[in-house]
Amino acid sequence: MNDHDSLQAATATVLAEIARTDAKAGTLLSTVSLPLAALVAVLPGRDLPGPVTGLVALGATGLIAAMLTVLAVVRPRLTTSTRGTFLHWANSTPEEITADLADRPNAAAHLGELSKIVTSKYRGLQLADDITTGALALLALALLGDVLL
C-alpha cells in the first residue's frame, strides 16, 4: 500500500468515526429527552417536598445541559478553511480546486482537520454522557425521596 492509499484509508476511517459520533449523539439525544418528557408530563400540579423539588430541578437542569452539549456535538463546524476541504473549495475557482486535489500534502492536512473534529465530538459525547449520568442519579434520588418522605 502506498502513501496515497494509506491516506485515503485513514481518511475513510476518520470519516466513519465522525458518522459514528453523530449516530451516537442522536441516540444520546433521544435517551436524554425521554426522562425530560416524563418530568414535563408528570410534575405539573404535583406538590413535592422541598428537597425532592430541589433534586428534580437539578436533575432537569442536568438533562437540559446534556441536551445542549449533544447539540453542540452535532453542530456543523464551519470555521476551518484548510486546503483539501469543502470549506476551502467553496471559495475557490475550479482551477484552484483541481490544483488542490492534485496536491497530496493537502490530504494529510485534511486528515488532521478531520481527526480534530472527531476528537472534539467524542469529548463532547463523553461530557454529555457524564452530565446525563449525574442528572439521572439526582432524579433517582428525588424519586426515592418522594417515596420515603
Rank of each mutant, 00 (worst) to 15 (best):
M1D: 14
M1P: 14
D3L: 12
D3G: 10
D5C: 07
S6F: 12
S6L: 14
L7C: 07
L7N: 03
L7I: 08
L7W: 09
A9F: 13
A10H: 04
V14N: 04
V14Y: 05
V14T: 08
A16T: 10
E17S: 10
E17A: 15
E17V: 10
D22T: 06
A23H: 07
G26L: 02
T27E: 00
L28M: 09
L29F: 12
S30D: 07
T31Y: 11
T31K: 00
T31R: 00
L34K: 01
P35E: 04
L36K: 02
A37V: 10
A38F: 15
L39I: 00
L39E: 07
P44I: 00
P44K: 00
R46G: 00
L48V: 07
P49A: 11
P51V: 02
V52I: 07
L55N: 02
V56F: 13
A57T: 14
A57G: 05
G59I: 03
G59R: 04
G59L: 06
G59S: 06
A60C: 08
G62A: 05
I64E: 05
A65S: 09
M67E: 12
L68A: 12
V70G: 00
L71H: 08
L71P: 01
A72W: 10
R75M: 15
R77A: 14
L78V: 11
L78M: 13
T80H: 11
T80W: 05
S81R: 12
G84C: 06
T85E: 00
F86N: 00
L87Y: 09
L87D: 08
N91S: 13
S92G: 07
P94R: 03
E95H: 13
A99E: 15
L101E: 15
R104A: 13
A107K: 01
A107W: 10
A109H: 10
H110W: 10
L111S: 06
L111D: 04
E113A: 15
L114E: 13
L114G: 01
K116S: 12
K116T: 14
V118K: 04
T119M: 09
K121C: 08
Y122I: 05
G124A: 03
L127K: 05
D129F: 14
D129T: 15
I131K: 04
T132F: 09
T132S: 14
T132A: 13
G134Y: 07
A137I: 15
L138C: 14
L139H: 06
G145C: 03
D146M: 00
V147P: 03
L149E: 01
